[in-house]
Amino acid sequence: MSKQLISVRINDELFEGEVEPRKTLADFIREDCTLTGTHLACEHGVCGACTILLDGEAVRSCLMFAVQADGASLTTLEGLAPEGGPMTPVQQGFMEHHGLQCGFCTPGFVISAHAFLRDHPDPTEEEIREGLSGNLCRCTGYQGIVRAVQRAAEITREDVTA
């Protein structure tokens, strides 16, 4: 199968590579770029574990081909907080409220929560539940996740007012 040259900026680093047109964006990120923080749990667009930010929008990287991301700028879980630097409010909220157990769905939840809070800085619990209903977790019963997002909104407000 003929390959296509693409260049994608991920977490502010430029990745160039030759990929088969059928290669999914998720596989490109994980295999070609060795950024394994993005997880695959269904590969048919339902569970949301593979969610990343593509030009700022939350997308499911298992439903896109890598060639469709040519020229785009992506953020994965690894790129949310600076290496060794402080966690983002969302990550902090997940830590404080036990928003993860096995951690496999976590990349998708954290990325989705980032996109959600950008659009809903002061969400109600109901809005959080609706906003994250496209991500599946099998460990937490979502208790800690909902609270984590509430806490993240709170931290963000504190940071703004501080």
């Binding site: 047109p21 059928r22 999914t24 596989d27 590969e43 048919h44 667009g45 439903l63």
Partner: peptide, 12 residues
């Protein structure tokens, strides 16, 4: 609609 994704890597 989902059938498309049933094939996973076979797509394309």
């Amino acid at each position: 609609g989902l059938l498309g994704f049933l094939l996973g890597r076979r797509a394309g």
